[in-house]
Design a protein around this nucleic acid. Structure first.
Lengths: 216, 216
DNA sequence: TTATATTTTTAGACAAGCCTAAAAAATTTA
DNA sequence: TAAATTTTTTAGGCTTGTCTAAAAATATAA
């Protein structure tokens, strides 16, 4: 269907589109750890295939077709992550790279059967929504802990940083998906956040609070 | 670890090595549906990496390392085929192309866990042995139906042709792995073979008899 | 054993996807 | 608004893996 490189570009553009409508060449280059000139080459190719809207110097956005392809890649990625954690018992910080490879297996029939086999899960192990076979999924209505008021309580439901070091840290602190927490205090000196979980207090840095999402 | 192309060449060389010790450039080209000149290029590369023994004009054989890599690819292929049939309920004629992609997912940890998840199967859906995590597997001691004497009986245990048209034909005739059959007669005119299965007679062509394997 | 046919390799080219260096366009700053 | 800076594109090159056409080596046949 599409080459590996094309799929990775579409995924990157999709991800960056969530932050800002129009995506710049440099942003894509940074996301994919490649050079701006390489990005320009690929953008022309993707535009030729009608997967993106592209005018020189003006940045890009996905076409409807492009977005469909991107969402499908994300569906495949998240379903394989779910499989790896729920069926093969990998930890949530171990699955990203494997899923990065597996998401390029092309058969949709395979993915739909995998979905069925696992009971049509709606969230991956990091709390991100899994698109269904039509590409529909609930948009996450989550807030970073750093963005809520003191005394708010909520359920840990997602992360912004998917790096294994961050996920390992959360695991160690017991800050995993589903846990109920209350934001007790924000220390003005360095924005450290004091949480309560299972009747115990826990301090997390501003950085961690920025990357940990809760449902209110 | 190795590129997709390298893995496919190693697999092809391994497969051809089972028929004849030394494998020729043209044989590999035919197996991979490519040109002899392309094969020569790749052989030099594989030889540089010490994966094959290669002298110009003399054909090739796998080194120990090369064979290990090849067997590992076959292990991955067959485990994924097993997964697709046993867990996702695909038919045995539908899984080859998918497994062809999946066999290149690189993590060995993933494959070992998949193996465990499925209870360490020893045969794939076509009856081929699945190498264990050390690369060991039972060699198939099977015979083509065309190669056994009249009145022999045995269990259908493998196929030589993995094409979906052949597998679909077998399925339709009920000639699936595990079935007990007796070779009743070989019609001298065209070598048609008359089988008995479940007390019913069944005629198969010489071609089919050549590609259907039984354990005695 | 020489001629013919086949197989294999070499030479040179091409597409995909990447790179560096330089030019062009857009943006920011003064 | 002109100058400086940043961003993006172009130009040209590299690697991988493929191809065709031609040359070289090997195998077969007369």
């Amino acid at each position: 269907m599409h080459t590996l490189a094309e799929e990775n570009y579409l995924k990157a553009i999709y991800k960056l589109s969530l932050i800002a409508e129009n995506v710049s060449t440099n942003q894509i280059a940074a996301e994919l750890a490649t050079k701006a000139s390489s990005v320009t080459d690929m953008l022309r190719k993707l535009a030729d295939k009608l997967l993106i809207n592209y005018t020189r110097y003006q940045g890009v956005s996905l076409t409807q077709t492009g977005e469909k392809v991107a969402v499908n890649i994300i569906r495949r990625h998240r379903l394989w992550e779910y499989f790896l954690v729920e069926k093969l018992h990998f930890k949530w910080d171990e699955v990203h790279e494997m899923a990065e490879e597996m998401e390029h297996i092309s058969s949709n029939e395979l993915i739909d059967r995998l979905d069925e086999f696992m009971g049509f899960p709606t969230r991956d192990p990091h709390g991100d929504p899994i698109p269904d076979c039509n590409g529909n999924f609930k948009t996450n209505d989550l807030k970073a802990i750093s963005a809520v008021d003191v005394n708010t309580c909520g359920i840990i439901s997602g992360v912004r940083d998917h790096s294994s070091s961050f996920l390992q840290y959360l695991e160690k602190q017991g800050l995993t998906i589903g846990k109920k927490i209350t934001i007790k205090e924000i220390i003005t000196y360095d924005n450290t956040v004091v949480l309560q979980m299972n009747n115990k207090d826990l301090q997390i840095s501003r950085d961690v609070a920025n990357n940990l999402l809760i449902a209110l």
